[in-house]
Amino acid sequence: MLSYIVRRAAGMVVSVLLVVTITFILMQLIPGDPASVLLGPNATPEQIEALKRTWGLDRPIWVQFYKYFANFFRGNLGESIFFRQPVLRIIGQRAETSVFLGIMALMVVVGLGIPAGVIAAVRPNSWVDNSLLLLALAGASIPSFWLGLMLMVLFAGKLHLLPSSGYTSVIATGNIANLKNLILPAFALGFVNAALVARTARSSMLDVLRADYITTARAKGLRDSVVILKHALRNAAIPITTVISFTFASLVSGAVVTENVFALPGVGSLIVQSVLKRDYPMIQGIMLVVAVLYVVINFVTDLTYAFLDPRIRYR
């Protein structure tokens, strides 16, 4: 187990280094130099030179690269051009909304996806199975922002059941009722991924249900619910958890658009604003935070499997 952890950890470090390198290279591709972009067309050459010196842009590229790395590992992702504040601080302020939205969407993913997959697998090829499959396929084809807008029309516009947009911090105000604002976005975001989880849950449950120990369990006279939930679902859990961990990237992607639709002050709407305002340090900071998070989550998932299924450690 230890050697497995060490190997995976080394892989994770390499990925993080590559992610940092890629963002550095991308930022070098910006046409024109950042100093004049920031200062605007009316800046004098002296002002541009001065700013370049403060940012170290007048140094050779490898010095810049080294500084970039050093700053990254010190947790310094630079300063936002628009907010004139450290990038990491702004991301921190926006994180609450995105984290809560993500958790609630994940609840939708698990709460809809797994039961749908299990029910479909228990009665394969029945009308329930076929309609669930079709629904899952449709779910995977609907753009989450469109679903969000349609839910907004229905539940906020016509039925007046839920708020249509905005969100105020639960942590700052202590008002849990604010989470109501995240119900529609979470559903829009979660539904698409639930479809994916349902498909995986179905196929891995089908595999497991064919196993001999399921026949044995049934032969022992165990109730159907016990066989399905205790014997089958537990063993089908690994592929299902894999897909759920994959949904991280897809949830982040979806959140970018969903936060925008529902005017939620999260990291997703922050990156869109930053793109429109050409706030490059901010864009770069969000890219780094999200990608590193992704790498770390993958690492943790891998370790979880190795823990759940000892065979994986020896591969």
Binding site: V19, L26, L29, S253, S274, M287
Partner: peptide, 22 residues
Amino acid sequence: MRVIDAIMAFPAIILALALMAI
């Protein structure tokens, strides 16, 4: 493949947005 894995660590829309900005 290591580089590809690293590129794929950026969620699709975030990478596309960053490239559009660049």
